[in-house]
């Protein structure tokens, strides 16, 4: 076969997908439990665990900032990749438009979360 092979740029998206998948598997169920169930219903965790001053301090801390940024952005890249590939698997070959939309949302989410986190300050 003397076909000319073009290098795939998939490693970028696959890398973000892999990292996001790992984080999602490890942290997202716990985050859903804490932020969606335990805090609003007020059980297991002491009252005020996620109060505004505490969360602001968390988001201003360098490590807390990094954690929030990684969870939001990488989960979005993970989801974008999964949605894009699922479309393909269901026979919807939406092509470049779908690719731009899926990864565009992830990129927008990344940019927005980064800028908001930076504006909160250190």
């Amino acid at each position: 076969m003397t076909k000319i092979l073009k290098r795939s740029n998939a490693p970028i998206f696959w890398g973000l997908f892999g990292a996001g998948g790992m984080l999602s598997a490890l942290f997202v169920p716990m985050m859903v439990f804490i932020t969606g169930i335990a805090i609003p219903l007020g059980f297991l965790l002491p009252a005020g665990t996620m109060s505004y001053p505490k969360m602001l301090a968390f988001a201003q801390n360098f490590i807390g900032k990094g954690f929030i940024f990684a969870i939001i952005s990488l989960s979005l890249w993970f989801a974008a990749h999964r949605v894009y590939h699922s479309l393909h698997e269901f026979g919807i070959h939406a092509g470049t438009g779908a690719k731009l939309l899926c990864y565009g949302i992830a990129l927008a989410g990344t940019v927005v979360s980064a800028s908001v986190l930076l504006r909160i300050g250190f």
């Binding site: 076909k3 092979l5 073009k6 795939s8 696959w14 590939h85 393909h88 698997e89």
Partner: peptide
């Protein structure tokens, strides 16, 4: 070259 190409492994889901 083949593994990393557009015909390569990343087609796999």
């Amino acid at each position: 070259e083949l593994v990393a190409s557009e015909e390569g492994v990343y087609n796999c889901s």
